[in-house]
Design a protein around this nucleic acid. Structure first.
Lengths: 303, 303
DNA sequence: CACCGAACCGAAAATATCTTTCATTCGTGA
DNA sequence: TCACGAATGAAAGATATTTTCGGTTCGGTG
């Protein structure tokens, strides 16, 4: 199933294409067909009626409407309007855009350009798809938390650690856990007023869900940072922060872009908390900077 | 920072307003009312149905349709679509291009936008400043290495781990060290044909320089990933990969953007190596993907 | 000033489009 | 294999758009 679709769209990444990618896993087969068509050729689809799009994708009107709903619009009419807008934007956008995947024989310069470009897209998509209300709620909880536990495994584990390091720097009490057993053991200690955060792209990593569940049941405020807003982990999450999902290619595992996306979310959390706790955060940041200066040798070496 | 500019239609935009002006004389009174409304607030009108617009302008559906026709569209439906497009274009034209630093009282939405923008900037800068010759040399060394050690402390330690995780996934032997003593202890084991990589933004972190020096003296190929190409760490580096340095602001520590930059470099290294060792890397990647699938619970949870 | 005609306008019918319902089909797990 | 539930599309139902058509207004004219 390689893209015979030609993927010739100018800027594949209006937040719509991102939304399609995020929601695709929770779509049924025929809905995916519709979503694909829409993401692939917004302008073309905007010109079609429900019936037209249904025929084009070999599905029914009902399915088209269902897809529109899933993408967050009240109905097809509104999706169509949005599509028209998107098309217009693309038109004026005129992005140079690197469309192709990274190939085995790409020269390194291309690899660098493509990777940078894709990560930039990921960032844009993440920012576009992040629910600031959920973010705000999570920030509020974090800022007031007695202690915070962060769960993550593999690449997500690094993100968890990153967040933890940052929170510690502004004087909060935070721990990252990547050992499932220890995570659960610690989760048991949590109670109302504490915060537990699970970082998992798939949202289905049992080892991460379990401690979150425990924390949830203990009354802690729970947050899920995941690329799948309908995945199991969200069952136990008071607040869900959605990360972007990008096309995965052979040489560029999904972990790469999901990490970028997760880190942005985590940064937002951090800055948000730092704002809320500015009085204490600012001096703490300054102090940690000061403390680190000693670990650095004097200066430059090459004249 | 919302646009108080209000866009009080000095030039409501494009051919539409022009068309309205041109055609106005040939319009009847009520049609002019409709045309005016449309030209004055395309976005708002795009949200209305024929009936809505008719009521808003105190006219009838028929008149609205007639106006649409006069403006050159087959019917109201199409005018509406065009309006949506126009609105979107205007919207995007307002490239807010966030220049200011993150302030303590910025709303979260701004924080998200600014962070995303700055990280995107960092990525672009990194890609632009990366020396592909140096990168190529590092990749060659990595691809052929008997073993690879990566040193990093603090935030850079996470980057080091990230690289290690990836290299392991394609069957290479790699270790990350953030304990300075263990790092040195291990560095002693290195010899020609091995690779040592130091990740440090400042380039002056003694704890990271030391193991690199040891590795260098043992004859290993050494690589420095640093934001300061003239810093002490480069003394012992065969190849220097430069990361971008961005303005540091009070609420956004340098660690944030240097991490982004470092990760891009590390990703480039990884993909480069994966290309060189494609024969073995591809199946290894597939296998690790396969193995992880078992760790994930079945699928979606919400209907 | 009354009358006429043409253009204008909107109510409502006719049509197209979108949405919902519901029976059927398909895939899946026991 | 069967039974169940999810997925799907046909068709009914609801809305929106377009058309029709008759009433109204306005300017001119006898």
């Amino acid at each position: 199933m390689t893209q015979d679709v030609k993927e010739s769209f100018g800027s594949p990444s209006g937040s719509l294409a991102a939304k399609v990618r995020t929601l695709a896993p929770s779509m049924t087969r025929s809905m995916q067909r519709v979503a694909e068509a829409v993401a692939g050729d917004p302008a073309g689809c905007a010109a079609l009626t429900v019936t037209g799009l249904a025929e084009l994708t070999g599905t029914s009107e009902a399915t088209v409407v269902r897809t529109a709903r899933l993408l967050g619009y009240p109905g097809y009419r509104d999706l169509r309007l949005a599509l028209a807008g998107l098309a217009a934007q693309q038109q004026s956008g005129r992005a140079p855009v690197i469309t192709t995947d990274i190939a085995v024989d790409d020269p390194l310069a291309d690899v660098v350009a493509k990777l940078a470009y894709e990560e930039q897209q990921t960032l844009a998509d993440t920012a576009a798809g992040l629910d600031t209300a959920q973010l705000g709620a999570a920030v509020t909880a974090l800022a007031a938390a007695r202690r915070t536990d962060v769960y993550g495994i593999g690449a997500s584990g690094l993100v968890a650690q990153d967040l933890t390091q940052k929170l510690l720097r502004i004087g909060l009490i935070a721990h990252a856990h990547s050992d499932p057993h220890l995570a659960v053991t610690n989760a048991v200690q949590l109670r109302s007023g504490d915060v537990a955060i699970a970082v998992t792209h798939s949202g289905s990593t049992g080892d991460v869900i379990e401690p979150l569940r425990v924390a949830f049941e203990r009354g802690a405020t729970t947050v899920a940072v995941t690329g799948r807003p309908d995945s199991p982990v969200t069952q136990y999450a008071d607040h869900v922060l959605t990360t972007a999902t990008s096309r995965e290619t052979e040489l560029r595992p999904a972990a790469m872009s999901s990490r970028t996306s997760q880190l942005l979310v985590v940064d937002c959390l951090f800055v948000g908390v730092a704002q809320r706790t500015y009085e204490t955060a600012a001096p703490a940041l300054a102090a940690s900077y000061e403390a680190l200066a000693h670990r650095h040798r004097s200066g430059r070496v090459r004249p």
